[in-house]
Structure formats: C-alpha cells, structure tokens
C-alpha cells in the first residue's frame, strides 16, 4: 500500500513523476514531430489536388487579407503561366465554421470544391460533404451567379439546408472574388 506522507517525500515524489513524464513527452514529441508535419502537408496536398486540374506545379501557401480567405495556392503550368488557384475559404454555416478548398480557374469559373472541415447537422447540412450529390457536382465548371436559387442565384441548395448551402456558396464566392482581384 501507499507509503506514509511527509513533506519531503511528497515533494520528491511529485518532482520525480513530473520530470519523468516531461521526459517521456519530450521524447514522444520529438519523435512524432516530423510525421505530424508530414501528415499535415500530405493532407493539404491531397485536398489541393482534389480541386485542381492535373499537372502543373503548386506553390507554397500564400496569405491574403481578403474576407474569409485563410490562404491560397497558385498552380503554374509548364510554360510558367498561372493555370489555376486553390483557395482555402471559410464561412459561418449552421453549426459553426464551414471551411472549403475551392479550385478556381483564372477566368473566375470553378474547377471543383471540397470540404475541409464543418460542423453541420448530420443527415441535413452535412450532405454538403457527399461528393456525388447534385449539390457537389454542380460546382464542377460552375460559372453562374453565386447565390442559391432562393436568393436569385444559380446554385441549387441542399433540401432543408438553405443556411449550409448559403454558407457554402459564400465561401466559394469569397474564393472567386480573391482570384478576380489577383487576376486584375
């Protein structure tokens, strides 16, 4: 059973335990640091590749002050011209922030979109993550008015999830606005 407590052994014991634990954590941290960074890079690469045409080289992440834009990547073709942009854009959805990766071509039309993170209602707003749904496929090559049909635009909203659809559309619109300002 437990040893008797005295001030000395309590202090010693706590110090020893904290030291050992700190050492264990320090070692684990330094061992896992590289894989964690690699995983984050791989994830970013995969999400960019999903929304851009194949080929070309992708730049490092760049920052922007534009509203709702977290960062963006530029894809350049072999001849050095800009072939597409991938923009990380966020808007307030139904349950919290909805973060998208939006692939935009230099002419302002959309190549593809993907959801990076969301907290929408399962079965309703969360349908925006289903890649083969009509809501998602309509974005491929989209160049119409960026608003849901209810608000006079060309985006078909997800049934019973207008707020999510609006947020999604807003995030895409932010990305397009950034690309337009970059192209000008």
């Amino acid at each position: 059973m437990a040893a008797k407590s005295s001030l000395l052994n309590m202090a010693l014991c706590l110090t020893a335990v904290c030291l050992v634990c700190a050492a264990v954590l320090g070692i684990t941290y330094s061992v896992t640091k590289e894989p964690i960074e690699a995983a984050a890079v791989a994830e970013a690469q995969a999400s960019i590749a999903k929304v851009l045409p194949e080929g070309g080289t992708i730049s490092e992440e760049m920052t922007s002050e534009a509203e709702g834009v977290l960062g963006y990547y530029v894809q350049t073709a072999a001849d050095g011209s800009v072939s597409a942009y991938a923009v990380k854009s966020v808007a307030g959805g139904f349950g919290g922030p909805l973060t998208l990766m939006v692939g935009v071509l230099p002419d302002g039309s959309i190549y593809n979109t993907s959801v990076l993170s969301h907290s929408e209602t399962p079965g309703l707003g969360a349908k925006c993550t289903e890649e083969d749904s009509h809501f998602r496929t309509q974005w491929k090559g989209f160049s119409g008015r960026l608003a849901v049909t209810k608000d006079g635009g060309d985006v078909d909203a997800i049934t019973a999830s207008t707020i999510t659809s609006r947020a999604y559309t807003k995030a895409v619109a932010q990305a397009v606005a950034l690309v337009k300002s970059l192209e000008d």
Partner: peptide
C-alpha cells in the same frame, strides 16, 4: 483551439 462563428466571421 476552436474557431467560433457568432453571426459573423469565423
């Protein structure tokens, strides 16, 4: 650790 949206931006 989390971003919040309270009506406005995240």
């Amino acid at each position: 650790s989390k971003e919040f949206t309270f009506g406005g931006e995240a």
